[in-house]
């Protein structure tokens, strides 16, 4: 185990993930500027623009957490290092997504209820009057492309690093075409004279943001309150952790096993049993070969209280 919070095996994939996230931020900024230039009065465009801006939160939180994990050393004030900064970043990203998703949905429903008709006028380009909606459609199509490629590249790195923040971002990027399609439909619908299409598309996009936020919130709070380790892509219990639990139960029959997650690492407590006679590294107990054994950072033994079993 290194002096920082990051296991040595993860240095190379982490460096690749950091580079990718800088590219992610760069491409997201180009999308924000492109969309911002053609926003107009459209509710769909405003919602899609805010969604794109929110897309900066996960990579920025990931980079902050990665910097702490890679460079900040354990100290007297932080004896466990900064392995939970990633979990904190995940929580912050989840709160931002949920709050903004709810606000956007509220705005879209209010606009729909008030039967607001969005005005989208024209601008002059090279002496030609162009309907701004065409530029909105072009901006929406452009906004679909970078996230598709970035999401594809993020996914294997997120799995290698067991990084929920990166994984959530990868899934959001991969699913971006859905919200992009809703945005396109909204603008084309508006052009066809269906005033409601704009607000309905905005509501669909905001529902997607809210759904991402709630899923991330459930998973991140589970970690912060020492819940059992959760799977990368859902709020279900992690299969790795379940296998580890079975392995420890087989090794220490009758013991109570408690697992929790600190960032990408798992810490295990084996209650009501004495530690084995020989000295073993925690990785010894990892059930599925060596490739992800770095995840098990600690195995503690809590012997039974004399004259009493159970805890």
């Amino acid at each position: 185990m290194s002096e920082t919070s990051l296991p040595d095996e993860l240095r190379e994939p982490m460096a690749r993930a950091v580079r990718l996230e800088y590219w992610n931020i760069f491409w997201t900024l180009t999308i924000i500027v492109t969309m911002g230039l053609v926003l107009g009065q459209s509710q769909t465009m405003k919602t899609a623009w805010i969604e794109d801006t929110l897309g900066l939160v996960p990579p920025v939180m990931f980079l902050i957490a990665a910097h702490m994990e890679r460079h900040a050393h354990r100290s007297r004030r932080f004896p466990f290092g900064f392995e939970r900064v990633n979990g904190l970043g995940f929580f912050v990203a989840a709160v931002a997504l949920t709050a903004v998703g709810a606000l956007l949905l509220y705005n879209a429903l209010i606009a729909l209820g008030a039967a607001e008709h969005a005005s989208v006028g024209s601008i002059v380009i090279l002496g030609q009057d162009i309907w701004l909606g065409w530029l909105m459609i072009a901006a929406q199509i452009y906004s679909l492309i970078p996230p598709l490629f970035i999401g594809r590249k993020e996914l294997p790195l997120a799995q290698a690093l067991n990084d929920k923040l990166l994984h959530t971002d990868a899934l959001m990027n991969k699913a971006n075409w859905l919200t992009g399609a809703a945005g396109l439909a909204g603008i084309i619908g508006l052009g066809l004279g269906w005033w409601w299409a704009d607000s309905v598309a905005a509501a669909i996009i905001s529902l997607d943001v809210l759904n991402d936020g709630i899923k991330a919130l459930r998973s991140s709070t589970a970690e912060l309150v020492d819940g059992a380790p959760r799977a990368l892509s859902s709020t279900d219990l992690s299969e790795d952790a379940q296998s580890l639990c079975d392995r420890l139960k087989a090794e220490f029959p009758g013991a109570t096993i408690r697992l929790r997650e600190t960032g990408r690492l798992i810490r295990a407590e084996v209650h009501d049993t004495h530690p084995p006679a020989q000295c073993r590294h925690p990785r010894y107990y990892w059930p599925e070969g060596e490739d992800k054994a770095w995840r098990l950072a600690q195995v503690s033994f809590i012997p039974p209280v004399e004259g009493k079993r159970g805890n």
Binding site: H117, S119, W131
Partner: peptide
Amino acid sequence: AMRNGENRWIMTVERASRAISQEAR
């Protein structure tokens, strides 16, 4: 000023405004 959301009519008036005024162009 035009009715909100009547985008084709809005565009017609915008085009006419630009055609008669340097300021609008």
